[in-house]
Design a protein around this nucleic acid. Structure first.
Lengths: 355, 355
DNA sequence: AGTCTCAATGTCAACGTAGACATTACGAAT
DNA sequence: ATTCGTAATGTCTACGTTGACATTGAGACT
């Protein structure tokens, strides 16, 4: 059904106008037409003063007629190869979470006249360095990244050269860099404590692969809270999705089929939450459920989540980059974004009666 | 709860290494160290042959020790200011739909050594031209855009200069440009015909604002199918969300409260679908429901949708851009991406018994 | 009238790279 | 031994821009 149609407008005219790739006008071209030097044109374009009204008008007219457009490449080269682009490097482009982060970044950067280049590593640690090097060759002014590779040490040299690096969602390894993260440990622990207060003891933890660091933190928080309640071995209820292994959805079905099934589930991230929802179908009352990350329709489905603003992650990271570009010096910062538990029902279920 | 912590590693050492923004090594620097001319270094870097193994090794060693990195700005300037970046301009960055499109674009571009700059216009028609001009100043090689402004005529000059422009999701206005769109009209008509065959007559159409073109097409398809079935006036059941007016969710509640409520609903896009879901709560059996655009959990909720692959939209658009960059000439093309109705239950409901 | 000030404009060079072209030198072919 | 081919390397320049500095001229002040 995918098809191609050609639109009507006179093809020959089109070809003619397309086949003359008139190269772009330069300052000198404009100057020639206006009868002034290229430097004067430059002054007009930059609005740097000391140009008579008369000349100014002539130059602007000439520029318009030639469709002059300042060449940022040359400009940047002239100024020491400093561009106004910042790169954001993501592993998995299809995760809506990162898109919201990207939106926050883009907006904040735009407020400061910077542009965002988006690059993906397809969650392939090996391609991370390649992609980063390529971006540095483009002379991006700073790097925002969700670290994927086991080690970001390869950026040490670049850091010394003054390129700000800000890591998002998890800190860099082997690299002194700023980072903006979530308080995963404490947030998860607190959620689990709530379940414990409600009487739950058999609490499961499900998560999909992806972010090692965040998931470890969340797992730590989960275990910590259970330990506080005297539950020392939670391993039967921990289901960490591994590549090739069962999916979050399958893990949940598996948990439900246990002889002593959990009475509550914590989902480690939005993917895992979706798995839980799929596995539970319409039977949300079978157990208590709290997901990390808010997700679309969670409100409609009455699912309690540990929420935060992904755009805020991006915004803060971008602000940090901008501060560094403005000569903020000092030790690396780790900014923690606030999370909060949103009660929507699923997390407040009491321990089922049959306990 | 948002906090800032400082990491440990020795601050003084950090400051020392940060405060020397050693400027980057150039070809000439490397040549000096290796005892050859900058041109020879250039040859090594470009791997353009005619360099003795011996020299080559020396140069590579020097380059490594100086952390040499080729300057793409200078390179691009040298080659007529042709970069390897392509811009993708979106209105609303928070719509997950566009993110999936962006993912498709990014991947396809990357396969051809191109990078994607993502820019947002915040759905503000006025800012579209500003953003675009800015990007052109950066010498992006091509533009991919979801048109927001009423008119893209301002790009005509640029098109004549040979910059490919490909519009996504809706065609450009006042500009001869390629576009990649969905078969919205036919797909919607077909979905409605299905409902009609199942006996429905009072079929509502709900959509949120956003894309004027697509929504008009879908509305046209909806009306067309109804007209075929002899329903000439569908206006009582058309709920087009306008800024400031009722949301999709409210519109649905309103529809359900009618004395003769619709027996089926078509949602014009994913936003509208979510509104419908929220309004219906758990009562999906109250009426038949088909949404345009697939969305997360639609499968789990058993909601029938008109689906397609957003990444495919992006991929095809990127392919078109690449073809144009490779001197594909000829009239503008309009590529239509296939859609298909996914039956999940909600669209197959018979007319409620009380009819 | 002579000197000074400063606005208006121009000239020159350099940012880092790579094509065009020049030069060198060494082994091969005559 | 001389010529030739060519691999290896170098020199020069332009890409478009803008800072640093130079020049011009007209009005202000003594």
């Amino acid at each position: 059904m995918t098809s191609q149609t050609e639109l009507q407008p006179a093809p020959e005219r089109l070809q003619v106008t397309t086949l003359q790739p008139q190269s772009r006008a330069t300052l000198a071209d404009v100057g020639r037409l206006a009868g002034v030097s290229s430097k004067t044109v430059s002054r007009v374009v930059l609005d740097s003063g000391n140009v008579s009204k008369d000349t100014r008008d002539k130059v602007l007219a000439a520029a318009r007629s030639l469709r002059f457009r300042p060449n940022h490449l040359a400009r940047n080269l002239r100024h020491g190869s400093v561009t106004n682009t910042v790169a954001f490097i993501i592993g998995d482009l299809t995760n809506p979470f990162y898109f919201l982060v990207a939106a926050g970044i883009e907006r904040e950067l735009a407020r400061h006249g910077l542009m965002m280049i988006l690059a993906a590593t397809d969650d392939d640690p090996a391609s991370e360095e390649r992609v980063v090097q390529n971006l540095l060759d483009q002379r991006v002014r700073a790097l925002l990244m969700v670290p994927i590779a086991a080690d970001q040490g390869y950026l040490e040299g670049e850091r010394q050269l003054g390129t700000p690096v800000v890591c998002i969602d998890r800190p860099a390894r082997n690299l002194i860099a700023d980072s903006v993260v979530l308080g995963s440990f404490e947030a998860t622990a607190e959620a689990v404590r709530g379940l414990i207060r409600a009487g739950h003891r058999r609490i499961a933890f499900v998560c999909s692969p992806a972010a090692l660091y965040t998931h470890q933190e969340r797992l730590r928080g989960y275990r910590q809270a259970l330990r506080e309640a005297g539950v020392l071995d939670s391993s039967p209820w921990e289901r960490l999705e591994n590549p090739g292994g069962p999916t979050a959805e399958e893990s949940v079905r598996d948990l439900l089929a246990m002889s002593e099934p959990p009475t509550a589930i914590i989902a480690g991230n939005n993917h895992a939450s979706l798995g839980v929802v799929r596995a539970l179908g319409n039977h949300f009352d079978r157990l208590a459920f709290i997901g990390f990350d808010d997700f679309e329709l969670a409100d409609a489905l009455g699912i309690s989540v540990i929420a935060y603003d992904p755009a805020e992650l991006g915004r803060r990271a971008a602000q940090l980059v901008i501060a560094r570009l403005n000569d903020l010096i000092g030790p690396p910062q780790q900014i923690e974004i606030a999370t909060h538990l949103i009660h929507r029902g699923s997390g407040e279920l009491l321990v089922p009666r049959d306990q």
